[in-house]
Amino acid sequence: MRQLDFMGKRRITFIASVLITVIAVGALAFKGLNLGLDFTGGTLVEVRYQQAPELDELRGQLENAGFEDVQVQTFGATNDILVRLQQTFDNEVGQQVVDILNTDTNSVQLVRAEFVGAQVGDQLRDQSGLGMLLALAVVMVYVAFRFQYKFAFGALIALGHDVVIVLGIFALLGLDFDLTVLAAVLAVIGYSLNDTIIVYDRIRENIRRSQTDDMPQIFNDAINQTLARTMATSGTTLLVLLALFFLGGDMIHNFSIALILGIVAGTFSSVYVSAALLLVVKLERKDLIPAQKEDDEEEELP
């Protein structure tokens, strides 16, 4: 089997990673995430027209009826319209919008209406951020416990790298960041970690077996040995996600985009970021020696 020299190219990929991360952070800082209704509060009404309506006309109708700051956009089909309103005081706003838009020539049907109080949105935002940090922290403790703290450091950077890139691209493209996307980002954390752990597992195994102290060589071997698996698993998952993206409908469109981005970033980072970082923090054979005992006994089992 061909051996690819991953570690030899680590400077180039480091620069690429840093560059993408900087762009992502910049997009987050200057453009910001386009937070969905779940986090900001407000009202969203989806209606279905019989024939595609004129959007400007529709906006005018709503503004004449006293709604301010109305955003109107098509959702999927041209006769499917999404109306966003700032916080309104009325509880029956969904039906109201339908009543305003309904005309004799073009009938309107309410598909869904969502209303989120600003306070609920704020709370959710805090909770989600906290949840994400907690997820990172718990996973770090687990990796430090199962491997060693230097591995935890590498995994943390790789995870941060993946999450920031997904969030950054969402900010850059102005995609709606809602609860399902948050779920996807958390799933990305799980997935990217999965990849990283598989590579780390092999690195640990190889360090314990090999006679040399040539870490770049050991890492290269480990990555090459797991490469087929990494590609196969990423491949099947991406196949499924592409099915979701093209066939799953608008409601999970952004969800699948976030996961696709995350899996591409996660696969890249498990090779170039998490493993290469172990060289940066100078992982040595003796870091793994105390755990050596448990490995030897298992060899003799039938």
């Binding site: 907690l134 718990v138 958390l186 752990i197």
Partner: peptide
């Protein structure tokens, strides 16, 4: 690999 993903899922469930 699975335990770490499971940990994330549990946190996802609680928040």
């Amino acid at each position: 690999a699975n335990i770490t993903t499971l940990l994330v899922a549990v946190i996802l469930f609680s928040i």
